[in-house]
Simulated assay, not measured.
Amino acid sequence: MAQRTTDRPDRPTIFVDADACPVTAEAIAVARKHALPAVIAGNSTQNLARHIRRSDPREDSGGFWVDTLAVGVGADSADFAIVERLSPGDIVVTQDIGLAAMVLGRKASAIGVRGRVYSLATIDMDMEIRHQEKKIRRQGGRTRGPAAFTDEDREHFAANLDRLVREAIPRRTP
C-alpha cells in the first residue's frame, strides 16, 4: 500500500471502511476533488478495486491517489488495519461506532455513511446505546434497524464529507 507523503503532512488521508459501505464512490470523488489520498479498506473477499477508475493514480503522487487495503475476513480486521495506519487529522468513513470511537481517540475524524460527523462529546453515549441494543438482541429481543438508505442520505454524506475535508485542510495565505 502506498504511504503518506512526507512533504505534505498537513493533507489528510481519507480512509473508507468499505465493508457494506454505500458511499465509497462519493468518498473517492471528494478525495479526487481536493487532491487527497484515499484508502479503501475491506476484507479480501471483496473486489475493492472496482471503485477505482483506470485513470486514478495508485501511488503517492503528492496529491490524489487511491489504493486498496485488503484484510482478512475476521471480525473487525478492516477496523484495526485502518486504526494502525491513521495519523491525526485523517478522516475515516464508517458505519461502525466502535471504529469511530477509536478514530476519535487517535485525533482523527470519523463520518458515518449518512453524513453524521462523530464527535468526542457524543461518542460515549453512542457506544452505550450500541451496548444496550446488543444486550437486548442477545436476550432474544429485537431492536429497530436503520431506515432504508436514500439519495438524500448520499447527498448529505457528500456535503458533510466535503465540509469536513475543507475544515481539515489548512487555508493558504497569499
Rank of each mutant, 00 (worst) to 15 (best):
residue 124 D to H: 10
residue 123 I to S: 05
residue 122 T to D: 09
residue 173 T to M: 15
residue 127 M to V: 13
residue 120 L to Y: 02
residue 128 E to R: 15
residue 159 A to P: 00
residue 123 I to R: 06
residue 147 A to S: 12
residue 130 R to K: 08
residue 124 D to A: 15
residue 172 R to W: 07
residue 114 R to W: 08
residue 148 A to C: 01
residue 129 I to Y: 07
residue 127 M to T: 12
residue 157 F to C: 03
residue 153 D to V: 10
residue 170 P to N: 04
residue 157 F to N: 09
residue 129 I to R: 14
residue 144 R to H: 13
residue 167 E to R: 13
residue 161 L to T: 03
residue 145 G to R: 13
residue 122 T to Q: 10
residue 158 A to S: 14
residue 160 N to A: 04
residue 165 V to A: 01
residue 140 G to C: 10
residue 159 A to N: 04
residue 158 A to R: 14
residue 122 T to N: 13
residue 145 G to E: 13
residue 128 E to S: 11
residue 155 E to K: 10
residue 138 R to I: 00
residue 120 L to G: 12
residue 142 R to P: 08
residue 162 D to E: 10
residue 153 D to S: 11
residue 165 V to D: 05
residue 122 T to Y: 12
residue 142 R to S: 15
residue 133 E to I: 02
residue 133 E to Y: 11
residue 140 G to W: 08
residue 146 P to Q: 13
residue 150 T to Q: 06
residue 166 R to H: 00
residue 166 R to V: 03
residue 121 A to C: 02
residue 124 D to E: 13
residue 128 E to W: 12
residue 156 H to W: 02
residue 144 R to A: 10
residue 135 K to V: 11
residue 147 A to C: 07
residue 146 P to W: 12
residue 171 R to G: 11
residue 168 A to D: 00
residue 169 I to A: 01
residue 144 R to W: 11
residue 140 G to V: 02
residue 154 R to A: 10
residue 173 T to L: 13
residue 140 G to T: 05
residue 121 A to R: 09
residue 138 R to K: 12
residue 140 G to Q: 06
residue 173 T to D: 15
residue 164 L to D: 02
residue 151 D to P: 04
residue 135 K to D: 10
residue 122 T to V: 04
residue 163 R to Q: 06
residue 128 E to V: 11
residue 161 L to Y: 06
residue 160 N to L: 01
residue 160 N to Q: 08
residue 159 A to E: 11
residue 125 M to V: 09
residue 164 L to W: 06
residue 172 R to D: 00
residue 149 F to H: 03
residue 159 A to F: 00
residue 156 H to G: 12
residue 115 G to K: 00
residue 118 Y to N: 03
residue 137 R to V: 09
residue 152 E to I: 12
residue 139 Q to F: 02
residue 149 F to R: 06
residue 144 R to K: 15
residue 142 R to F: 14
residue 148 A to G: 09
residue 137 R to Y: 07
residue 141 G to P: 02
residue 124 D to C: 02
residue 167 E to W: 04
residue 157 F to I: 09
residue 116 R to S: 11
residue 170 P to I: 01
residue 141 G to F: 06
residue 169 I to N: 02
residue 173 T to W: 12
residue 165 V to R: 03
residue 157 F to T: 05
residue 154 R to S: 06
residue 161 L to V: 02
residue 161 L to G: 06
residue 164 L to G: 06
residue 173 T to C: 09
residue 169 I to Q: 02
residue 170 P to E: 05
residue 158 A to W: 08
residue 150 T to F: 08
residue 168 A to C: 00
residue 123 I to M: 11
residue 152 E to K: 13
residue 134 K to S: 13
residue 131 H to C: 12
residue 170 P to V: 01
residue 142 R to D: 11
residue 141 G to D: 05
residue 142 R to A: 12
residue 162 D to T: 04
residue 171 R to P: 02
residue 171 R to K: 15
residue 137 R to Q: 10
residue 168 A to W: 01
